[in-house]
């Protein structure tokens, strides 16, 4: 589904170079649910942005669903985002002037889906997140948890094969967080590949695969038949540890 080979991202400001990602390599298979953890400033969001085609990378190779991202134009990248990727943001990022129905409709309009088909999908997705009856409400009339469910509905409406969640429970209380996590698990069971960035260790543990980003590099915790394995790449050297 997703393959990154030695992807680096360098931010350049005047005379200062910041290496946000260093030779980052990762493969995410179809149907996986991965939790990405790591300290603040470690490069989690940069990884998520590059994975979600929200910003370009400096070097390396990135393939998403068989498409080499490196040479795509801005329009091609936008279309790929729209067709293959669903986003769930920490701050929900709902458009305050649009009601729930219209918010969920946004990516579908960009895809040029006909009004009748849009209506069916929106109603299905709002139903799935339990907010069908509040389609005409504005985001500010909902609680944080409800807003995040709308954001999930918006991400699902385009039937993406790849779902990116950036701290999806970061602004929610524990009860709401659990509900959102259960929803993501259900979506994953239905076949979507999910990459979720989180600070919440408990939430991360619920994901079948955990990776940790430290200083722009990857530490990969994978559950194989109940036994976790650490595969870390540092300075192009692979370290394998067992029993973590």
């Amino acid at each position: 589904m997703l393959t990154m080979n030695n992807v680096s991202k360098i931010y350049q400001t005047n005379s200062v170079q910041t290496h946000a990602l260093r030779d980052f390599s990762l493969t995410v298979n179809e149907g996986e649910f991965i939790a990405v953890t790591g300290p603040s400033g470690s490069g989690k969001t940069t990884f998520l942005n590059i994975a979600g085609l929200l910003e370009p990378f400096t070097s390396g190779q990135y393939t998403l669903d068989g498409v080499d991202i490196g040479g795509l134009s801005d329009n091609q990248t936008a279309d790929l985002r729209n067709q293959k990727i669903g986003y769930i943001f920490q701050g929900f990022n709902l458009i305050p002037d649009l009601n729930l129905y219209e918010n969920v409709e946004v990516p579908l309009r960009y895809r040029g889906i006909a009004a009748k088909e849009r209506k069916i999908r929106i109603e299905q997705c709002l139903e799935q997140v339990g907010l069908a009856s509040r389609a005409k409400h504005l985001p500010q009339q909902l609680s944080g948890g409800q807003q995040q469910r709308v954001a999930i509905a918006r991400a699902l409406a385009g039937k993406p094969r790849f779902l990116l969640a950036d701290e999806p429970t970061g602004n929610l209380d524990s009860l709401m967080a659990r509900q959102v996590m259960e929803l993501l698990e259900e979506i994953n069971k239905n076949g979507a590949t999910i990459v979720m960035v989180t600070h919440d260790a408990e939430l991360a543990r619920r994901a079948p695969r955990n990776i940790q980003v430290v200083d722009g590099q990857l530490a990969d915790f994978t559950l194989y038949q109940g036994k976790p394995t650490l595969a870390a790449t540092r300075d192009n050297e692979t370290v394998v540890a067992s029993g973590v």
């Binding site: 329009n75 279309d79 729209n82 701050g91 385009g158």
Partner: peptide, 16 residues
Amino acid sequence: TKQIGTRRALGARKSA
């Protein structure tokens, strides 16, 4: 600004 970024993230082309 954030709304525009979100629209772009959701697949809006620059022309949109």
